[in-house]
Design a protein around this nucleic acid. Sequence first.
DNA 1: CTTTACGCCTGACGGC
DNA 2: TGCCGTCAGGCGTAAA
Length: 278
Amino acid sequence: MPELPEVESVKRELERILGRAPVIEKVLLKRKDLRRPMPTNLEGLVGSKLRKFRRRGKFLLFDTDRHTLINHLGMTGWWRLSPSNNHENLKHDHVEMVLSGGKHLIFNDARRFGLIDLVSLGDEKSKTYMESLGPEPLDLNAFTGDYLFHKTRERKVPIKTFIMDQKIVVGVGNIYASEALFRAGIHPLLPAHRLKNSGAEQIVRAVREVLTMAIEHGGSTIRDFKHSGGEAGGFQERLHVYDRQGKACVQCDGVIFHQVVGGRSTYFCKHCQRKTHR
DNA sequence: CTTTACGCCTGACGGC
DNA sequence: TGCCGTCAGGCGTAAA
């Protein structure tokens, strides 16, 4: 479900609604595995204060006094803060934390592609699934045209598949990959190694632009993404190509095409996006 | 090493 | 109304 803007929106929402450092008074584990086993030491969170929320790529990180809880939303994961007097149980609730004041912070994930893990405070890099992550796309020093250009050398996969690879750059998923390539004017099927330096610069610029704008609008709700407050994002109305096959291109007379690339639905304009790129 | 095919799950939707 | 196939924004693994 969520890509970087949606995860960032959830992070900001949690910061807003949780207030200052609530104590975790109880942890209820309702299921022992999501896409991998739940950590056995989740109970160790009891007594700690929830201090800080961070994001690394599509991962959410919850810092307490002693631990960092690592969370990935997968496709359908979401958090909600249930009021103290009236918490309802929903189908697919998997972890519930009772906070000081009585509110319940609940993780729900229908498809169970999400992940919850627990490490010592700040020690998330000890997890193999985090150590290979590429740079943050909004880190101006790390994610540059030169960086992307050099990474593409010798790589034959379509450029769209390439920018969705979390080892190359984190946070870009299926929606924003199509959107960024449209904005960059680059065809999604272009083999990565055929990209030129100027094309790499264009992609970096477009990725940053579309992610930044999507964050400003609270992410995109296509099917079931929702904020912790339950409301939808707003950027779906500003998507230029995603889920718009057959509709008019926003910048030429043509129509948007749909094609499966690397097993994923891909949307682009044949006129505005070229395989031969300067 | 890179690339591709497939599996993991549930739910929503469209066609019949 | 129901059944059945397909698809969904994620990632990991096996095999070539």
